[in-house]
Write a protein that binds this DNA or RNA. Structure first.
Length: 223
DNA sequence: GCGACAG
DNA sequence: ATCTTGTCGC
């Protein structure tokens, strides 16, 4: 289920609306042996997008394999069309893996999206693999306020429709937005994020103390 | 028309 | 995404 990536905004919208109907919003996953986490960074000096994929053994959570790939950015960042910018390098990295992940955690929304087709859903439908949308900030919808304790959650709704969960993965730390990507239910998705969250640094990387320390170090070292 | 707006 | 300065809370 592949399509061109050399397109304009209106073509992207058309493809997005078409593919949104293919998203499966219930559990349809085999026994998860390997879980992958993927993310993309942008280097504005070279105009290159760098994608990374890390595969974990789902039992031990040990790293089983990693992959990295670069690609020129050929689509601008447009809220709502994010996947058309980041999926090309991501697909490149995923194709070099020798292990096929049974579940992929994405840095961005799944169906918590204006047309219910964020990057996690797009990646899931393209590769026909279960995916979870895991975003640091809200794109659309009305966010409930979860309790302060890890595991607390509140619904993310759009005109009464539940499109995701606002989930607290660490005590006293900003919650994240979890939504269905593809072939998984919201509750199963949240279970996986809670299982994985002690092992990743998604909310922590945005903590002010962390930023302040990095800034201070950088300023001292450059002089 | 104006504000909002994943990374 | 990436970069910086200013403010607030514990």
């Amino acid at each position: 289920m592949i399509h061109s990536w050399d397109l304009d905004e209106s073509e992207a919208l058309r493809i997005q609306k078409h593919l949104a109907s293919k998203v499966i919003k219930k559990d349809q996953l085999d026994a998860v042996r390997y879980v992958a986490g993927v993310d993309v960074a942008y280097d504005e000096k070279s105009g290159q997008l760098v994608a990374a994929a890390v595969v974990l053994d789902a039992g031990s959570l040990d790293v089983a394999e990693t992959a990295i790939a670069e690609d020129v950015a050929r689509f601008p960042y447009i809220p709502g069309l994010f996947s058309f910018r980041e999926i090309p390098p991501l697909a490149k990295a995923l194709k070099t893996l020798t292990i096929a992940p049974d579940l992929i955690v994405c840095d961005g929304q799944g169906i918590a999206h204006p047309r219910r087709f964020g990057i996690a859903s797009h990646l899931g439908v393209l590769f026909d693999v279960p995916t979870i949308g895991c975003a640091k900030t809200r794109l659309t919808g009305e966010a409930g306020q979860p309790g302060i304790q890890r595991g607390s959650h509140a619904p993310l709704t759009d005109h009464g429709e539940v499109i995701g969960n606002v989930l607290r993965t660490q005590n006293n730390v900003k919650p994240i937005y979890v939504s269905i990507g593809h072939r998984i239910s919201l509750s199963t998705a949240c279970d996986w994020i809670l299982k994985l969250s002690p092992h990743y640094r998604l909310p922590e990387t945005t903590r002010k103390s962390d930023q302040t320390v990095r800034r201070a170090l950088k300023n001292r070292l450059s002089f």
